[in-house]
Nucleic acid binder design. Sequence first.
DNA 1: CACACTTACGATATTCGTAAGGATT
DNA 2: AATCCTTACGAATATCGTAAGTGTG
Lengths: 299, 299
Amino acid sequence: MSEPNLSTRQLRAFVELAELRSFTRAAARCHLSQPAFSALIRSLEQAVGARLFDRTTRTVGLTPEGSLFLDGAQRLLQDMQATVEDLGAHVALRRGRVSLAALPALAAGWLPAVLQEFRGRYPDIELDIADALSEECVERVRAGRADFALAAVRANAPELATEPFCTDRFHLVCRRDHPLAARRRIAIGALAGHHMVSLARSSSVRQLVEAALRPLQMRSVMELEQLSTVAGMVRAGLGITVVPSLTLFHFEHADLVTRPLGTPALRREIFLIRRSDRALSSAAQALLALVMRRKPGPR
Amino acid sequence: MSEPNLSTRQLRAFVELAELRSFTRAAARCHLSQPAFSALIRSLEQAVGARLFDRTTRTVGLTPEGSLFLDGAQRLLQDMQATVEDLGAHVALRRGRVSLAALPALAAGWLPAVLQEFRGRYPDIELDIADALSEECVERVRAGRADFALAAVRANAPELATEPFCTDRFHLVCRRDHPLAARRRIAIGALAGHHMVSLARSSSVRQLVEAALRPLQMRSVMELEQLSTVAGMVRAGLGITVVPSLTLFHFEHADLVTRPLGTPALRREIFLIRRSDRALSSAAQALLALVMRRKPGPR
DNA sequence: CACACTTACGATATTCGTAAGGATT
DNA sequence: AATCCTTACGAATATCGTAAGTGTG
């Protein structure tokens, strides 16, 4: 009853014929022989159940019903073209949106250069970046608010997939004039007895550091929130600290030195979290590809 | 480049699959075998140049691009259906508009019953009726402001076609106590010497009456605009008048009698005027058919 | 008779359904 | 093993182009 089977070819043929008022010329524009074009128009008229053209052998003109249909046909063609082009723009990465959640350590130090390259390549794709702690990163992916995430924990929800992304070595940071600064590699035990400046106990870095140092205990524990504060403390000679390599940019200062920690190396793992039940959009795929290609190497 | 050839079948298949998330069930709804349905979806994906579904063997879901396209596909289908239905409504005379221009004599006396029948049959078709003198009737058709017209003149424009519609006998109207009222048929010559009440010289009725009576001259000529005024004058005994039969309803009064005039009958012809270069809309065709069927017979 | 659309018809392409294949639960 | 989608393939259908037909100026 209400399921006419029309094709864009029919509609385009109709519009061309309405404008050119000549089967011969309209057929040429549609790259069809004139009889085939004639049949196409006939099939359209049959599909919509109305005679759309009055053909005398000498002249072709729209019927009143045809005039009525012309508006709709043009609108439909335009809408269809716009819809398909919009889709194409997304596929071709000329448009779109990608959302990424990442640990602040990654978001501040490593990510900006990646995003700059991404924006240079796909200037019209919107970037939605969240710097969040690992748990919130995972939650954002789970809730669909992020296409994928880089976090320091594995996801345990069934609809989420976790894969290793990179490893992050722990480093000792101390003043250049500190005794430990003389060594190139430092074993964990060497930290014993030194004053430590540390982040708040809730921070994942702190938890990982504590776990790595165990059973060593820290001396003069602090509860700082910001790594830049830690850096200030260390620079002032209040102690040493241990941080993952991705955060070392906070400590780039002439008075400070950084040394890899542990043999074998002490490290934490960063994971890539994504939904397993939903494909990534083209834009997200593109960002993911770039992220993987510019993955930080082991340092 | 920008001419994707989509069909409504593809769009409908796409929407069904997006909703049912099952090739098997969606194929059934589309009355297709499952492999044929699968091919249909594949052809759509190829046409728009994007993968729209993610198929694992166990589950089917839209890709992000597919979600994007779903809105457009649904909108397109709905618009197409509405457009075709609107066209169908016009063809089926459930909707539309017809414009008719007719002489006041026809518009007042004969037309109302015709329109009433038309409206009874096609209650939702808008009627645009103009009562106008013959020249304006023709002009309205020429300008496209009327689909067709009933007038007392032939059209001479090349894009207009004129065909006879009906003939309109002239009648004498006089008081019942007038000497002429005694006769059943009255020759033209019998009018000589009687006082005449007449319309303005510009009226077509007046011109036709004068031509018909020639070389007889009228006595006590008046310049009235309205036939109802003429009727009043005749009733008052100021004279007799001659009018075409279609206007006789103005003179239906107990004191008045009407008599056919002339042997052979004195008559004017009413013509149907329409454009020859443009077809009539379905609504106009329907009204025309009814008008022809209820054509006034010779009286 | 020249032009423009329609009809006729054989050739080509597309689309269909059945049957077999492959992957996942 | 059962389910679901894809691939394979012969058959039915649709569409195409050439050529002949028809009506009009």
